[in-house]
Design a binder for these strands. Structure first.
Lengths: 317, 317
DNA sequence: GATGTTGCGGTCAGAATATGGCCACATCTG
DNA sequence: CAGATGTGGCCATATTCTGACCGCAACATC
């Protein structure tokens, strides 16, 4: 056979039936020498196909993936969920080479083969019916995730360059503890050896990751979960904002749906709101969507900034 | 790349995702010359894979559906992506019984068994290292998705009750065409037989789904993709906004990162921005984070509303 | 334990195939 | 129409593949 790739695909097609084939049979089918067949088998193994053999009388080659799969382990819903998880993950990011979303896109097209036969038809139907919109979020490297997970389990210290918000990179040497996924971003909770304190890093900003051989003694996590710590970190730079709004509580609650604000009715038409914000900017949408007068009691810096922005808005024309 | 077959399998894995790839992208990914890529594409076509192309701007290669593919093995990254897809999907929703996210959570604990032995250790490591935060989004039923997909393939008419924004339910009889995932929500694009027009439904608001035995004759989709139709629906109420900002283009691009704005530099310190918004409120954050003067040329309604809001901000105290 | 039948992997000379660069051309979009 | 994409022929060179040969390993049967 003149074309290697075609022959490999033909060999795969035969083996994927799950049947056992003797070397002689495959040699005849593929029209190659026994030695070449053995090379082809080696090649498939190198690609990750688990071809098993038995020498001696009745010897044969067989592709074990089909028979090794546990049947009925994933129920229908779980199989569908696997597919959907990959579909949505593959649409979250920019498909950068080596990224998790890129790998998800590839797996999305392959995962059928790991499903029981009766579910494959359904998976095909679902795939044909489905479209996902791209969500712009930072891509992360699968390699980095896996390396960090390994370092965590073995308690290995890692070093990396970390690109901050201003674009400058600093070298870090840390004890990694947890990965956290929050709001489409992946974070690493780690103990920073230079700062002698806990730090949270965005994984998409980590470059040049190196795992060292030195190990660290685990210390208790700063909070019950890494997610709690991440949330605390987000709260650290927030100020307590107190404002009064000339609107009834339900209307205010609606405007503050996406923020954890404490709301107290002062009257039928007036509500007091207390919340934490790191910057006055985030108040704008709440106040804009509320067609009501309001007073910012504190902090005074917010009040000043809002007034300055108001002046900017009015200076047009 | 040293091994042709492996490269062909990699090319197949990329193309089978159904996505369009430009020649440059495939060249970069496969690390071959453009000429070699074209030969590879020819090779795939010779094997019977229907690769379609489009020359000219936005030109690309795409594998059209419907072809039986050789069994493709999940590589390391893809296996990790499968796990991560399930982790993030299981955290998206309220884990209602019968929902996709609940099924994802169950599958998350089982998927190791589909991985080659060498990857199981890694999957366990990664799982142990990972936390995901719950994203509040509507849960959808896996059964509904699957039933709809089946109805789409067989061209069966379906009926269901649809709960609108005001909480009232209406009966619908539709020809289903596509599922769309957009901004954490799942939608159904269908032809509404009562309205004799296309409609988009949120799947979490569908109850009492019944598939009937009557079939429908397919009609052309209203747009190239269902996603385009969904976006058009979202765009319908959007106005073209034109503004000039006294800031350099990079600063403006940064402020408008999350919006599809067309930016044109008018000078070193002045930039023109054109974008579509359904309401002026969404301009506030862009303008607030940009510490620069600006002029809203159109629409005049936005200009008036922004000035009124500015007055509101200044009337405090 | 001996025998026969299978699969295994290294080596070699010659044959076959693949590659990138170059080019003129076709097709599509704005 | 200009620019950006895909197309396919040609060529010299580099790379890979092949069958034959060989000694060996693993298995089932007698």
């Amino acid at each position: 056979m003149a074309d290697v790739t075609q022959r490999i695909l033909a060999l795969l097609a035969m083996l994927q039936t799950g049947r056992a084939f003797s070397g002689d049979e495959l040699v005849a089918r593929l029209d190659v020498s026994p030695r070449t067949l053995r090379r082809d088998i080696d090649r498939l193994r190198a690609y990750g196909y688990p071809v098993t053999t038995q020498p001696g009388p009745g010897g044969h080659y067989r592709l074990t993936a089909g028979t090794a799969l546990p049947p009925l382990v994933l129920d229908d819903d779980e199989a569908i969920a696997t597919l959907l998880g990959l579909a949505t993950l593959s649409a979250t990011g920019r498909a950068a080479e080596g990224s998790v979303d890129e790998a998800a896109a590839r797996a999305y097209g392959k995962v059928d083969q790991y499903l029981p036969k009766r579910l494959r038809h359904r998976a095909g139907q679902l795939r044909a019916s489905l479209e996902t919109s791209t969500t712009l979020a930072p891509s992360i490297s699968a390699d980095v995730l896996v390396s960090l997970a390994d370092a965590m389990q073995r308690r290995h210290v890692v070093t990396f360059d970390y690109v901050g918000k201003d674009g400058s990179a600093t070298s870090r040497r840390v004890h990694p503890y947890r990965h956290v996924h929050h709001n489409l971003r992946w974070y690493l909770l780690a103990w920073d050896t230079h700062k002698s304190d806990w730090r949270v890093f965005r994984i998409d900003r980590i470059t040049g990751l190196q795992t060292s051989t030195s190990t660290y003694t685990p210390r208790p996590l700063p909070t019950d979960t890494a997610l709690d710590y991440l949330r605390q970190g987000l709260d650290k730079d927030r100020e307590r904002v107190v404002l009064t709004i000339d609107a009834p509580l339900p209307a205010v609650a609606d405007a503050f749906t996406y923020q954890e604000a404490e709301l107290v009715p002062l009257s039928d038409q007036r509500t007091r709101a207390v919340l934490k914000l790191d910057t006055w900017h985030w108040l704008l949408l709440n106040l804009a969507f509320l067609d009501a007068d309001f007073t910012v009691h504190e902090p005074s810096g917010f009040r000043t900034a809002l007034r300055a922005f108001g002046a900017r808005l009015m200076d047009r024309e």
